[in-house]
Amino acid sequence: GLPPGWRKIHDAAGTYYWHVPSGSTQWQRPTW
């Protein structure tokens, strides 16, 4: 699974990851 606080988001551009507490997003899968 993903580290705490991360969500996987799907949209028209593809899949990305959202860090809910900080509001940051990234294309790379977050690592622990």
Results as ranks from 00 to 15, higher is better:
G14S: 04
T31K: 10
W27R: 13
A12I: 11
P21N: 05
K8E: 15
D11H: 10
P4H: 08
Q26L: 06
G14N: 05
V20Y: 11
Q26Y: 04
W18V: 15
W18H: 10
A13H: 14
T31V: 11
G1N: 13
S22H: 04
T15H: 08
Y16E: 03
T31H: 09
W18D: 03
P3E: 02
Y17Q: 02
P21K: 08
T31D: 11
W6Y: 00
H10W: 09
K8R: 12
K8S: 08
W6T: 03
Y17N: 00
R29Q: 11
S24R: 15
A12R: 09
D11E: 08
A12V: 11
G14D: 04
P21L: 08
G5L: 01
Y16G: 06
A13Y: 13
L2S: 05
H19Y: 04
Y16I: 08
S22M: 02
R7A: 09
Q28R: 09
Q28G: 09
P21R: 04
S24Y: 14
Q26W: 06
G1Y: 09
H10P: 05
P21T: 07
Y17S: 00
R29Y: 11
Q26A: 07
P30D: 01
W32L: 09
R29D: 08
W27P: 10
W6H: 01
W6R: 00
W6F: 01
D11A: 12
I9G: 05
S22K: 02
T15P: 06
K8Q: 14
T25I: 15
A12G: 10
P3Q: 02
P4K: 05
W32H: 11
P3M: 02
P30F: 00
Y17H: 03
D11V: 10
T31M: 12
A12D: 12
P30Q: 01
Y16R: 08
R7G: 03
R7W: 09
I9N: 02
L2W: 01
Q26K: 03
A13E: 11
L2Q: 07
Q26H: 05
Y17L: 02
S24A: 14
I9D: 04
W18F: 14
H19L: 06
W32I: 10
G23L: 03
G14I: 04
P30E: 02
T15Y: 08
G1I: 10
S24D: 12
P4V: 05
R7P: 05
A12Q: 10
R29E: 13
Q28F: 10
Q26D: 04
Y17V: 00
Q26R: 05
Y16W: 11
W27M: 13
Y16L: 09
R29W: 08
R7Q: 12
Q26E: 06
W6E: 00
W32G: 09
G14L: 05
L2I: 03
P4R: 05
W6N: 01
Q28P: 05
H10M: 12
T25R: 13
H19F: 03
T31Q: 11
W6V: 00
P30S: 00
I9R: 05
H19S: 03
T31A: 11
T25P: 04
W6Q: 03
Q28E: 15
S24H: 15
Y17I: 00
Y16D: 02
G5W: 05
A13T: 15
G1K: 13
G23E: 04
P4G: 06
T31S: 11
T25Y: 13
R7Y: 13
T15Q: 07
L2G: 02
I9M: 12
G1V: 11
P30R: 00
P30T: 00
T15D: 13
Q28W: 12
G23Q: 05
A12E: 14
P3D: 02
G23H: 02
W18S: 07
G23V: 00
V20P: 04
K8Y: 11
Q26M: 09
H10K: 12
S22N: 02
P21E: 13
H19P: 03
P30N: 01
S22G: 03
I9Q: 06
W32M: 11
A13R: 14
Y16H: 06
G1R: 12
V20D: 08
Q26V: 05
H10T: 15
L2N: 01
I9T: 04
K8L: 14
S24N: 14
P30K: 00
I9W: 06
S22D: 03
P3T: 01
L2F: 04
S22A: 04
H10N: 10
G5I: 01
K8V: 15
